[in-house]
Design a protein around this nucleic acid. Structure first.
Length: 131
RNA sequence: UGAGUCAGCCAGACAAUCGCCCUGAAUUAUAAGGGAGGAAAGUCCGGGCUCUAUAGGGUAAGACGCCAGGUAACGCCUGGGCGGCGUGAGUCGACGGAAAGUGCCACAGAAAAUAUACCGCCUGUAAGGGUAAGGGUGAAAUGGUGUGGUAAGAGCGCACCGCAUAUCUGGUAACAGAUAUGGCAUGGUAAACCCCGUCUGGAGCAAGGCCAAAUAGGGAAACAUUGGUGUGACCCGCACUGUUUCCGGGUAGGCUGCUAGAGGUGUAUGGCGACGUACACUCGAGAUGAAUGAUUGUCCAAGACAGAACCCGGCUUACCGGCUGACUCCUUAA
RNA sequence: CGGGGCGUAGCGCAGCCUGGUAGCGCACCUGCCUGGGGGGCAGGUGGUCGGAGGUUCAAAUCCUCUCGUCCCGA
């Protein structure tokens, strides 16, 4: 049961948040201006799976935005499932309580079925940003 | 048992933990309830709803096209007719009009539609005449088969079939059947233009409405009442009253529409059926950077196609499998 | 979500409306002109016309469905 071990090792991150932090309205990036700020002044973290942009904000909590174009991911089912995966990873990590605005972009050819791989890459991205 | 046809249904289930959207008794922090599909898809049709006199009348343009019915409506569905396919259950069909008109029919062929005559056949010394049976061309050649007839032939005559016209019978009708007459007149193509009949105003929830905020009737020049503008096909009509250009100034956030509907389920009843009527019960998504997820465990037939965005009725396309019912054919056994 | 357009040779485009022969330019190959390169001339190769079905004697063309791709509209 290798999968169980991986989750167990990630539970140090999970254990902190569970009751206090949720994916609420305030944790989302909404308007076009907020997106523009991240695109203009953001740090980048690039990978074969995702491109991630981030800036610090002074709010004390992080906010997440996603831009998943139809050109890159054709079917609506896959787009939804990627959004869910990203949101789940964001919620389960400690980065929620730090103050960042984050935008996630997918790379061109992503296999939606390889969930473990996508997750691991997201977790490493969060670590990079918070250095 | 095998092969097959049609109709309908399901679209992994259960438990635990964490989490998302909506409603929300109670009152500021939590119970409880609900939460994608048969195609939500393609946007191919038809409506509801909203706005707009370019909505009225006419023309144009487009769609449809056997008959009857169903429906809010349809290009959909049901039943029937006709034709094709299949041993059969069944299934498929853009299935009006070519004796209103125009166009087209390459190549080959004598000739591709007011007909005509290459090789032939008959007659004749020949010129010419008669003829369309046979050959040949082609996707298609001016009723087909047989027989009489003839110089050779020919609906020229006759029989059967086809066709046309008329009458009668059955059927609401499409159509079918019968009888009589005619004596072959009418090549194909309408998914070529077209004719006939029926229908269609346009735009679409990013429609539209409300609140707040902002802007704001400024200046200059030119032209003009034979008008000008509103034109998204055009004309008549209708509406409005100065119009155009330049300079200066300048904003876009929230709420709503938003789900109780041609809704669903059951019973009774009318109808061959699609479907209608009556009664009872019921509320089963409503996001707005956009909710349905993740992990673990158990079971099995090992989970396909695929994600609502105003809502319905269809059509088309994608799809791993499984189940039920009715029916047909073949083999074996009884 | 709504409204449009385009798929034809390796590349860029005609042909489609009005159905019978698939063509143009660049590229590629061969030969010639030149001592060689470049350039020019002549000839040639190469396309089930995005896919499936239908109408027709015959479909790139007409009709229906479908798959890609591109452009508009807060």
């Amino acid at each position: 049961m290798q999968e169980g071990q991986k989750v167990g090792s990630g539970s140090q991150l999970d254990g902190v948040n569970s009751d206090q932090f949720r994916y609420l309205n305030k944790n989302r990036l909404k308007t076009a201006e907020q997106f523009r700020n991240v695109f203009n002044a953001g740090k980048r973290s690039i990978d074969s799976q995702f491109i991630i942009l981030a800036t610090e904000n002074l709010l004390g909590y992080s906010r997440l935005g996603m831009a998943i174009p139809k050109k890159k991911i054709n079917r609506a089912v896959d787009r939804n499932s990627i959004k869910r995966l990203i949101r789940e990873c964001f919620r389960n990590s400690t980065i929620v309580e730090k103050g960042y605005d984050i935008v996630v972009l997918p790379q061109n050819k992503i296999d939606v079925k390889q969930k473990e791989r996508l997750k691991n890459s997201l977790i490493s991205h969060w670590k990079k940003i918070h250095k």
